[in-house]
């Protein structure tokens, strides 16, 4: 019997959620990311110490007054970890956004137009895949300085090739579909076909990938800051670990708590990414009626 379900947007969201929630890791990751996002938004209003205030004693171990202790300058580690959420998330999401945009546009152009476009873009993609991103970022950061915008841009522009590859493959198979031919037949311009019909249909597999890129961008930023190349004006988990690493044997809490924050954030993002990949991949989906 033919199933004539009336799926509106609300119902397809519910449908999606029903599949998604079967993945335990994905649900845990989602809740923990939501909490982290909430923290990033409301941190100015939280009843915590000023993260830059140095009025407390240095190297105070975790106590009721300072749950995560204080660092070498006497700043409250808890409030610094909470404020660091903002930096990490903006770098993570910002870089993933830049990388996805670049990847989607270049990948779809390569796939749709083919020929010389494909040839050139594919070569560029391969070059970028070959360059170790981290060292390129190191180089740029040490030459041009280390504003957070540079960090976002540089991370974004070195991680787009994976997105571009996925989109290119999707485009190659979609452009042979009849509805794309139909668009040409009715006289749609190439940009209309590309941006209104092709990309929105090709974008699904990229979503999971982009979430994973958020995680890797957060790690990259932490790595940069750990090497002292992060934005000096911002509180960053990487920089906190860098500062605390000298005292790791005497005052472990200075490096430990920001480290834990990175682990939790990156793990949640990875769990979400994996769950999305499973749910969005039609081949893994159970076959219904």
């Amino acid at each position: 019997m033919k199933v004539h379900e009336n799926k509106n947007l609300l119902e397809s969201v519910r449908d999606f959620w029903n599949k998604y929630k079967k993945n335990k890791g994905g649900v845990i990751g989602l809740y923990s990311l939501l909490i982290i996002l909430l923290v990033a938004v409301v941190v100015p209003f939280l009843p915590i110490y000023d993260p830059n205030s140095i009025q407390f004693g240095s190297f105070m171990p975790p106590s009721l007054a300072h749950l995560f202790g204080t660092d070498e300058l006497g700043r409250d580690v808890l409030s610094r970890v909470l404020w660091g959420t903002r930096t990490s998330l903006s770098v993570g999401f910002g870089a993933a956004l830049v990388s996805s945009l670049a990847g989607i546009i270049l990948g779809s152009i390569a796939g749709y137009f083919g020929g010389l476009f494909d040839e050139v873009i594919s070569r560029i993609t391969e070059i970028f895949l070959m360059i170790p991103a981290f060292f390129l970022i190191l180089l740029i950061a040490s030459i041009y300085g280390s504003s957070i915008y540079y960090v976002i841009l540089v991370i974004g522009l070195t991680t787009w090739p994976s997105t571009a590859r996925i989109i290119r493959a999707q485009t190659l198979s979609l452009k042979e579909r009849e509805f794309i031919y139909a668009q040409k037949v009715i006289g749609s311009s190439a940009s209309r076909v590309l941006f209104i019909h092709l990309i929105p249909n090709a974008i699904q597999p990229v979503i999971a990938n982009s979430i994973l890129q958020v995680a890797s961008a957060i790690l990259l930023e932490a790595g940069l800051s750990f090497l002292g190349l992060g934005d000096p004006n911002l509180i960053s988990w990487g920089k906190m670990i860098y500062n605390g690493s000298i005292y790791i044997f005497s005052s472990w809490w200075i490096a430990f708590f920001p480290g834990l924050a990175i682990v939790i954030t990156v793990a949640s993002l990875n769990m979400i990414g994996d769950a999305l990949a499973t749910v969005l991949n039609p081949r893994l989906e159970e076959r219904g009626a």
Partner: peptide, 11 residues
């Protein structure tokens, strides 16, 4: 019968 998450369909 087939079951979807919100309905049953008799095949």
């Amino acid at each position: 019968e087939y079951k979807t998450w919100n309905s049953k369909i008799e095949a």
